[in-house]
Simulated scan of single mutants.
Amino acid sequence: MASRRLAVADVATAPRVLPSRYLTPDDLVAMFELPSVETVYQWRRKRTGPRGFRVGRHLRYDPVDVQAWVESLREEAAA
């Protein structure tokens, strides 16, 4: 699990511009090179991933919340 956290932290060090729209689970899969969208849903069930919200039956993520989550992982990795 620690290697996954470090990999996410490494992704965050590269300068990137987050989209101005809300992100889908598929967007997170692409951003973090996850094995499947099921990983994103597991994060949500376990409350370990970025904060998400529902729009009807669709799950969405605010890019600011995703960035804050990545920053928290980076802080954990540095501690």
Rank of each mutant, 00 (worst) to 15 (best):
residue 1 M to F: 08
residue 1 M to D: 08
residue 2 A to R: 10
residue 2 A to D: 12
residue 2 A to G: 09
residue 3 S to D: 12
residue 3 S to F: 10
residue 4 R to W: 05
residue 4 R to N: 05
residue 5 R to N: 12
residue 6 L to W: 08
residue 6 L to P: 00
residue 7 A to D: 11
residue 8 V to R: 09
residue 8 V to E: 06
residue 9 A to R: 05
residue 11 V to L: 12
residue 11 V to D: 00
residue 12 A to G: 13
residue 13 T to D: 13
residue 14 A to K: 04
residue 14 A to W: 00
residue 15 P to Q: 05
residue 15 P to W: 01
residue 16 R to L: 09
residue 16 R to F: 04
residue 17 V to A: 06
residue 18 L to W: 13
residue 18 L to E: 09
residue 19 P to T: 07
residue 20 S to G: 09
residue 21 R to K: 15
residue 21 R to C: 15
residue 23 L to Y: 09
residue 23 L to F: 11
residue 23 L to W: 08
residue 23 L to V: 14
residue 23 L to P: 07
residue 25 P to G: 12
residue 25 P to W: 05
residue 26 D to I: 03
residue 26 D to Y: 03
residue 27 D to W: 03
residue 27 D to Q: 10
residue 27 D to M: 10
residue 28 L to A: 11
residue 28 L to S: 05
residue 28 L to H: 06
residue 28 L to M: 03
residue 29 V to T: 09
residue 29 V to E: 01
residue 30 A to Q: 04
residue 31 M to L: 15
residue 31 M to V: 14
residue 31 M to C: 08
residue 31 M to I: 14
residue 32 F to R: 07
residue 32 F to D: 09
residue 32 F to E: 02
residue 33 E to Q: 14
residue 35 P to H: 02
residue 36 S to R: 01
residue 36 S to I: 00
residue 36 S to C: 03
residue 36 S to P: 00
residue 37 V to K: 15
residue 37 V to P: 00
residue 37 V to C: 04
residue 38 E to T: 08
residue 39 T to K: 03
residue 39 T to Y: 02
residue 40 V to Q: 00
residue 41 Y to V: 03
residue 41 Y to F: 14
residue 42 Q to S: 13
residue 43 W to M: 08
residue 43 W to S: 03
residue 44 R to F: 00
residue 44 R to D: 12
residue 44 R to V: 05
residue 45 R to C: 02
residue 45 R to F: 03
residue 46 K to H: 13
residue 47 R to E: 11
residue 48 T to E: 06
residue 49 G to N: 03
residue 49 G to L: 01
residue 50 P to E: 02
residue 50 P to L: 00
residue 50 P to F: 01
residue 52 G to F: 04
residue 52 G to K: 01
residue 53 F to C: 04
residue 53 F to Q: 07
residue 53 F to T: 00
residue 54 R to V: 06
residue 55 V to M: 09
residue 55 V to P: 02
residue 56 G to Y: 14
residue 56 G to R: 13
residue 57 R to E: 10
residue 57 R to L: 08
residue 58 H to S: 13
residue 58 H to T: 12
residue 60 R to G: 00
residue 62 D to K: 11
residue 62 D to E: 14
residue 63 P to Y: 02
residue 63 P to V: 07
residue 63 P to D: 09
residue 63 P to L: 07
residue 63 P to S: 12
residue 64 V to E: 07
residue 64 V to Q: 04
residue 64 V to A: 06
residue 65 D to V: 06
residue 65 D to T: 02
residue 65 D to W: 04
residue 66 V to D: 14
residue 66 V to C: 14
residue 66 V to A: 15
residue 67 Q to M: 09
residue 68 A to R: 13
residue 68 A to Q: 10
residue 68 A to Y: 00
residue 69 W to N: 14
residue 70 V to N: 02
residue 71 E to L: 09
residue 71 E to M: 05
residue 71 E to V: 11
residue 72 S to R: 10
residue 72 S to T: 09
residue 72 S to Y: 03
residue 73 L to M: 15
residue 74 R to I: 13
residue 74 R to D: 14
residue 74 R to F: 08
residue 74 R to V: 15
residue 74 R to E: 15
residue 74 R to N: 13
residue 75 E to L: 10
residue 75 E to D: 12
residue 75 E to C: 01
residue 75 E to I: 04
residue 76 E to S: 08
residue 76 E to D: 08
residue 79 A to Q: 06
